[in-house]
Design a protein around this nucleic acid. Structure first.
Lengths: 318, 318
DNA sequence: ATCAAGCGTGAATAAATATTCATGCGGAGG
DNA sequence: CCTCCGCATGAATATTTATTCACGCTTGAT
């Protein structure tokens, strides 16, 4: 019988607090109990399910998908971008916009940003960044070699340089091809002072933006001309590769696929990547579902930015 | 396009705060924005309707009825007691329990409690008070004369005395009939030192518990034998009386009905009652709907305790 | 181009809320 | 009947949240 009365009290307090917008001290005066008691009653109101907070997802946001992926893969942050259609153009654009916003919102003074060139989503990100005056990034570091056929080189270098400009930082380029013919030639390249200078900076990166590659390589890589042969890709696939980050291939569990090919890439290794405090992976599209899942499983990235269609697939991925 | 992104952010923050239970400073670290911004985003989440708090009334509580009556009559507090059936026994008992709880919860050291005797609900209240040790009321003052036929006198006096005991206060009795034969005899009575002493204390009452009488008088009053004649009651009714508090009759608007009868009552006047900081009216039952409505309209009481059936009627009362 | 108004930001601070602590009550078990 | 334990309470305090303030950016008018 007193139970009912207590529930009434809790309900009334919850009403006054949440609906009428009174503060606890007002309620405590009106109801002649201490503020501490009001606080306690409110806590009970939540635990008893008398007050319920529901969060309504505004159209264009997908918190449920985000949570589902966060929980499924144990990743700290997922951003699902809205997107009308499930084709590469729309998806990359949506992801690019979201990535640009993330960069703008979270950039801090003195940040050292790493970018893997060669990524269509990161290209899109660039096009959507609003120049920032507020903060001053220290440096933008190219994480993957960019020399190849002329058009491709422009992409890679420009991406780093433009980004540096937009966020008031110094570009630090990696003047090398992304893949060399042999481990030896890679070693020689890396001993080049300018290349070495950049590689030495890898450990200072505070935030890395990386694309995620699928096993059927993207247009950019095909065009660049200095990447792997079909045979090499098939070998990787037969060893379980599901995707790459900075041309570092990994398995469905996100384990790096070491070997000769790994030694021929000029760029940040997956080990170095994991040492970066915040790695932001941007990718979407049907081809990339398994690649993204692998990166998530291996905790290769801390933040995933993707589109709602890919998010849907990931949330159901087995 | 940035709108969507902002909504996403708001939604995410709301999720972290309300669902995951993180504190704003945690969120600000995770999302790399300032705590102030988190607070602002949360405020926007409410104003944009992204978070909604709903309050579910536990069974046996009637917050909607309470609000309806509060708003309709502009009264500060209404307590609607749960009650299975709409008969006097059940109703009075429910109200008594609720009144007892209110008293227990809100009694403060040094309070001076006034009680109109003659009320079935207040009788019930007594039976449900759990003796209080915590606080020490100063005094319990009988607001209405109680002398009449012996059995009734016991009721009135006992009510005051028992209550005083239960809340560790001194009883201050009003040893007089509730209604005298003429204004003159009332004046004489009031000049009696003991009566005068009590009447003089009326202005010190901090909380008054009063029943509300309907025009068809209750069993208690009929039994007491020293109340009004049918003719007198009919006269009152013809002048618009809808009910009484401490035998002070009032109209549908809660205006006191002055006149000869008013001058023959030994007890607190409605003017004195309005000067009391907190007046708690307890009443329920079909007969009393109009009486209660009048008391509410005239702001004669600050807190109404009633049952759910009567509350329903009041909320629809024209 | 220059300047003022308006907005949004984070640091500092004020305000509100949650928790701790000490106390007193009530009930269970000697 | 007494004692001890668990619980509830309010005052004091710690913690968390909201607001203020000062500043810098953007925008739109001159």
């Amino acid at each position: 019988m007193s139970r009912t009365n207590e529930l009434r009290m809790i309900t009334r307090v919850a009403q006054m607090y949440h609906l009428e917008g009174l503060k606890q001290s007002d309620i405590s005066e009106l109801l002649r109990i201490s503020q501490a008691s009001v606080s306690r009653l409110l806590k009970r109101a939540e635990s008893e399910g008398i007050v319920r907070v529901s969060i309504v997802a505004p159209s264009g946001t997908y918190p449920d998908l985000e949570s589902a992926i966060r929980e499924k893969f144990g990743i700290s942050e997922v951003i699902v971008a809205d997107c009308r259609e499930d084709n590469d153009d729309a998806v990359f654009s949506a992801i690019g916009v979201a990535a640009a916003h993330l960069l703008e919102q979270t950039l801090e003074d003195g940040d050292v940003i790493g970018v893997s060139s060669w990524s269509a989503t990161l290209q899109q990100m660039l096009d959507n960044i609003h120049p920032i005056k507020r903060v001053r990034a220290e440096r933008v570091i190219q994480l993957l070699g960019g020399i190849g056929v002329p058009s491709a080189q422009i992409h890679a270098t420009q991406l780093t340089t433009r980004l540096a400009h937009l966020i008031n930082g110094e570009p630090q380029l990696l003047p090398a091809p992304c893949v060399t013919g042999s481990p030896e030639s890679k070693r020689i390249l890396v001993s080049d002072p300018q290349v070495k200078a950049t590689v030495d900076q890898f450990k200072r990166v505070t935030t890395a933006f990386v694309g995620i590659g699928a096993m059927s390589p993207s247009q950019n890589l095909i065009y660049s001309g200095n990447t792997f042969t079909q045979a090499e890709l098939q070998e990787l696939a037969s060893r379980g590769a599901v995707g790459d980050i900075c041309l570092r291939f990994y398995t469905a569990d996100g384990e790096p696929l070491a070997g000769e090919i790994y030694e021929r890439v000029v760029g940040m290794t997956l080990e170095e990547l994991q040492a970066v405090p915040r790695v932001i992976g941007t990718a979407g599209g049907k081809r990339k579902t398994a690649s993204i899942a692998g990166a998530l499983r291996g905790k290769l990235i801390d933040v995933l930015i993707t589109d709602r269609f890919t998010a849907e697939r990931l949330s159901e991925f087995t």
